[in-house]
Simulated scan of single mutants.
Amino acid sequence: MKKIATLATALLLTACAKGPDAITPMSMPVNAYSGLSCNQLAAEHQKSTNALNAVSAQQRQAQTGDAVGVFLIGVPMSSLTGGDKEGAVAQHKGEVIAISSAQRNKGC
């Protein structure tokens, strides 16, 4: 019985939302931004950075919600109800990296 409880606890904890800093960026092609001017790249960078900041805040809330849910009722509620924004965080991190690389390539 003790082994089952330990296994259940481990499974619940692995289902919890990751912190935004622990999420790996999604690979994005730099050449997708190669046709943009320096001004356009700066605007895209700002847009992606703002989006990353917004979804990172949501991800931190999901992480906190999961921790509270597991502590109180044993269930990571945010992850189960769609609050986990890991995919969006990874996407926007990848965009920011790709846009920054395109800016460096153009000498912006």
Rank of each mutant, 00 (worst) to 15 (best):
Q103N: 04
S100H: 01
A67P: 02
F71G: 08
G74S: 05
P29I: 03
Q61E: 13
I4Y: 11
T81F: 12
N50C: 03
L80I: 11
R60N: 13
A15E: 12
I97T: 10
D66I: 07
L52G: 04
G65P: 07
Q46V: 06
L36A: 15
V30D: 14
A22E: 15
L72V: 05
I23A: 13
S56C: 07
G65H: 04
A102S: 05
Q63N: 13
L7M: 12
S100N: 06
I73Q: 10
G19K: 11
P25C: 10
F71Y: 07
N39D: 15
N53R: 10
V89E: 03
A67G: 06
T49P: 02
M26A: 15
I23H: 13
V96T: 04
G94Y: 01
S48R: 00
L13H: 13
A67D: 08
L11W: 10
Q61P: 01
G83E: 03
V96A: 05
A90L: 01
F71T: 10
S79L: 04
T81K: 12
K18T: 03
E44C: 11
G74K: 07
A62S: 15
A5M: 13
V68F: 10
G65W: 05
T6A: 15
G83M: 08
Q46L: 14
Q46M: 12
I99Q: 01
V55D: 10
F71K: 11
T6Y: 12
K3I: 07
Y33R: 03
R104A: 14
